[in-house]
Write a protein that binds this DNA or RNA. Structure first.
Lengths: 265, 265
DNA sequence: CAAGATTTGTCGGCTGGCCGACATAGGGGG
DNA sequence: CCCCCTATGTCGGCCAGCCGACAAATCTTG
């Protein structure tokens, strides 16, 4: 079953040559409940094929917009590769990033049911390919594949839990804690793609494999850009983080994790 | 269909004499997406009967605990009457209330899929009756009732959206705004039961029909108890709120709503 | 109905993090 | 290769909201 999953993902992601070998360590599976649950991987080969048939390919440049608040919700999307930023904008112009969707993840389902307008924005965080499925087609697919409905429920559940955690953090933790937690979460979730950093003794490090500006981090944890900058500097000086290419590595994941468990569970 | 819904809810709520006449105004249906979507009302008579058959009745005293973080997630619950508070506790002992579940609403589904342990606490906010359905039974029920699966998806979606709103608010709004928004939300959602206040010209007022201590409000919006107290006092002095029995009335809902739309959408 | 427990109300001191303002530093396109 | 636009880093002033500490009011329960 775990193998079917891989095949499913491959079928969808298409013609990646390096695809077979992205060895995400199994221990990350443990944090599953925190991830937004790779939808594609959970499907069987036939199911994936069925979805492929009704999907339409969409290519997005970096910063390309997929939909915005107020749009009619006509489609459900699945990330093939790249990554999509989902955010809301308050009337003061402040963005709040709700989550990122990584390869295999589905998004736009929350609007599926009510058929109401979008309430959030979806933008490509980098060059990204997504598959677009018409709402009605997807609904029909769910109707004829009860198993898949269950998966959808599972995914939405995971998202509810993630948002719950985020809320608790926002309400009780200080900025440093929130950043630490965020990085750990993203490390787990962004491990779907391999890190390009050929280890210089970096085997025990945890890679946060997403390009995140300080502003992004700020919008994710509800803090100001400046505070994020200075907090990250502190963490780097303290030897917790290391900047690699365009992203971060967490030097001693275990130490950080333990610190968080003590500081706030 | 709207009528079937009512019947369904009645069948479940059981032997309430005053049940038929709880005339919730139709205009509140508009804020559907914000509510946690009355699960029972959305079921047909047969579906409700089917659920009843596999459900077990549970009675809870005020403050009675239904489950706690760490418990095995063996059941899914539906509120018959009363109301349930769902919250998380950080290691510092601070509670964060995620949401309240009102009659007809289902909760505990988020844990259903992963079968993992509970991450949250569920307590009765007052004397409450809930129906408890074994996880496996409910999963089977969903499998044999695709329609109901879709409803479940809709409900989880609504919850995702609600949490999203809450997060944005937490990240961008000040305490006064958050309280105002909370009260409007609860007014909509708590209108499932009638207000006991026989109007003394209170027809245009909006009733927030839940017993909420200031501490509860604080835990809901991520603020301190003291700040909530003083903010509520300000709102009362300004003529926005009125205390009735154990709950609040919003004097001029429209005015408040407009103020919020301007202040932060 | 009295006593304990919970909730509400109020004050002042303190501070984490916001905001504005600026100086660099990259880095991608022409 | 240079220019411009975006991202990073740093500083100081300022204030919303936190916290501790109490008193009054209200509710619950024997």
């Amino acid at each position: 079953m775990g193998n079917d999953a891989r095949i499913g993902a491959n079928a969808f992601a298409g013609s990646e040559p390096d695809q077979d070998g992205h060895g995400d360590p199994d221990d990350l599976r443990g944090s599953w409940s925190d991830a937004h649950a790779d939808f594609l991987s959970s499907l069987s080969e036939e199911e994936t094929a069925g979805l492929l048939k009704i999907a339409r390919r969409v290519e997005l440049k970096p910063r390309g917009q997929l939909f915005r608040a107020g749009d009619r919700s006509n489609d459900v999307f699945i990330v093939a590769d790249g990554c999509i930023r989902l955010f809301q904008v308050s009337s003061t112009g402040k963005e709040t990033i709700l989550w990122f969707s990584f390869p295999g993840e589905i998004f736009g389902i929350a609007e599926l049911w009510s058929g109401s307008d979008r309430e959030i924005y979806a933008e490509a965080n980098e060059a990204t390919r997504v598959y677009s499925i018409r709402r009605s087609d997807f609904a029909e697919f769910l109707g004829t594949h009860p198993e898949v409905s269950m998966r959808a429920i599972g995914i939405l559940s995971a998202r509810v839990r993630t948002l719950g955690h985020a809320m608790v953090g926002l309400a009780t933790d200080n900025v440093e804690t929130r950043i630490a937690r965020l990085l750990l979460r993203f490390a787990a979730v962004s491990s779907v793609r391999p890190c390009d950093d050929t280890g210089d003794g970096a085997e025990h490090e945890l890679c946060v494999n997403v390009r995140l500006t300080h502003q992004d981090v700020a919008n994710l944890i509800g803090a100001s850009r400046q505070t994020v900058t200075s907090t990250l500097t502190v963490l780097r000086k303290r030897g917790t983080l290391r900047a690699v290419n365009q992203h971060f590595h967490i030097i001693q994941p275990e130490r950080l994790r333990r610190a968080l468990e003590l500081g706030a569970a």
